[in-house]
Design a protein around this nucleic acid. Structure first.
Lengths: 136, 136
DNA sequence: TATTGTTATACTCTATAACTATA
DNA sequence: TATAGTTATAGAGTATAACAATA
């Protein structure tokens, strides 16, 4: 069967992201985490006290969608909100959040290593810079 | 602000795919098409008479989700179902479907050219083979 | 007046289980 | 018995508009 779609980098990008995302989601799911959860934990660990808006901007999640997102992370005990002034709150990891992050890192680092190993050696070092150029 | 996520190809893959997908979706939307619609039209043009199951397998869409998908394409007059035997139908483009495909191709080819142009020259030829290795 | 956080809502995409009619 | 198509449903992700409280 002919597949003219294979010539399109944009199409391959979408399919590759979906395939990789499905694998990572399944593995993080065993930790009770979604991809965005793990990304948030990593970002908050490196930047304690980020506001919801700034965290959302970094993750590509809109303010309005950050509310139920952070509510869930707070309910599960991974983050806490600490008031900065009357309208702004800094988000901080809890001890439980840091513990779960340790597990998540193991999963992610294994996943990323497997992912890059799937790429033929001659293309391997080009993948990350090429992808970053597409959105950064 | 530190962003440790930028070291992860898997994360960059997801963000790049989302960014690129948002642009393409908006442009195809002006033609009344979604990304999967355009992919289906291209695939059906190259392979007339594909069954729903085989088309879905090629597009990475599950059988159950093909039903409302093809119903919509049929309602909009882009495809028709031609019975093969009592339980199987071949999907074919209509004249209207082929006409819309012509417009979609223009949009997609422009988009793909812009996308690849965003990648620094030294990485450019590596992107497609690297992405195909991740899901093909 | 602009910004932060919020509420409500809706649409798309994807996933699963179960049913039917037919091969 | 296996397969093609279908139905129903639920979960995730994402988008917009509008509001209150505060800077």
């Amino acid at each position: 069967m002919k597949d003219p779609l294979l010539e399109f980098p944009g199409y391959a990008l979408r399919r590759a992201a979906n395939a990789a995302g499905a694998i990572l989601s399944e593995r993080l799911g065993e930790l009770g985490l979604r991809q965005a959860d793990a990304s948030a934990l990593i970002l908050l660990d490196a930047n304690p006290g980020l506001t919801s808006s700034r965290l959302g901007a970094a993750l590509g999640i809109q303010r309005a969608n950050m509310v139920p997102f952070l509510n869930r992370l707070e309910t599960e005990g991974f983050v806490e909100r600490v008031p900065i002034d009357g309208r702004t709150q800094g988000i901080h990891l809890t001890d439980q959040g840091r513990a779960r992050l340790t597990d998540a890192r193991r999963v992610i680092e294994t996943f990323e290593a497997e992912l890059i190993a799937m790429v033929p050696r001659e293309h391997r070092t080009h993948l990350l810079p090429a992808l970053l150029a597409l959105w950064k």
